[in-house]
Amino acid sequence: MLLSVKGLHKSFGDLEVLKGIDVEIEKGSVLAIIGPSGSGKTTLLRCLNALEMPNSGTFEFHDGFSLDFDKKLSKKELLTLRRKSGMVFQSYNLFPHKTALENVMEGPVIVQKKNKDQVRQSALNLFEKVGLADKVDLYPHQLSGGQQQRVGIARALAIEPELMLFDEPTSALDPELVGEVLQVIRDLAKEGWTIAIVTHELKFAEQVADQVLFFDGGHIIEQGPPLEILKNPKEQRTKQFLNRILNPS
């Protein structure tokens, strides 16, 4: 078990978005989080690296690092948590004033204080991996959405996280660019990266995920292997959701 989350609560003002979530993420597994918009699934993902600070709950990592959100986190705890995971955003959020290569090198060089030459070499390898070896010196605005998102993935991988978080990584893309990004994520899954992904790509979830988690109204409605959840759901709300997605009227 890489990470075990217990009793996660999160409210924005009076609005309770996460109502006591328990999740376990197996090392080397892919967890797909699906659910209607506004259900809190993105909030759940953003809580995993405290971009949203949970109101209460506990995290326990396999290496013994643990957090209790009932107490205020120290700066050190917060940074330790964030440096365990890499995040890929729906809107890429690349640094527009830096080239693709600089975007990827920023974390290892500035945050992890690694040797610049070595970082450059491993960054170039990452560009190879995401299929952008010829684009390293371009600025984000010179890249297509799919290319930008692949740089975003390389940037997250560069800090060598234990857990990769994907927040609807293909939702902002033109349909014809979705495939290239999903392919990169598929490769990462094959290489054994631990991945948590919020997605609307049900087919992708079915093929790549080890666990699918259906989320609605701040609760986990059901959870299990993709075939069970996507093909043979037990809960009425899951059925309705799948029905809406598969048969849009």
């Binding site: 690296n49 890499g86 959020n93």
Partner: peptide
Amino acid sequence: GQWEAGYAIGM
């Protein structure tokens, strides 16, 4: 999102 991208790489 620019702040968040910075935080997400551990800044």
